[in-house]
Amino acid sequence: MLIFSVFKTLTDQQVTVELKNDLSITGVLKSVDQFLNIRLDNIQVLDAARHPHMMAVKNCFIRGSVVRYVQLPAEHVDTQLLEDATRREAANPSKR
């Protein structure tokens, strides 16, 4: 749930999502749900020449289960706060 909350705070930021089929998409994070499905607006595909089918696509929905990595803007993630929250959750697993 913590990671979901982190993603929610990052809406409207630019992120890069790498999928398990090696497709990398950069776009503005529009929404994320409890499965970490991701909605990106205004997308750009890395190595677009290799992925001609993406040329006419501007917004997309990515199923959470096929995501390998998400690159986040470091300046918008407070890792110290996240670390504290993780410890708190680990110490207190009932309060989810």
Binding site: L19, A56, K58, C60, I62, R63
Partner: peptide, 21 residues
């Protein structure tokens, strides 16, 4: 079935006409 979906993209109908294929 959802588990087979990787990506769902909205096709921009204007951009679609410009695709150089």
């Amino acid at each position: 079935r959802g588990e087979n979906v990787v990506l769902l993209g909205e096709i921009d109908l204007d951009k679609e006409d410009e695709v150089p294929l």
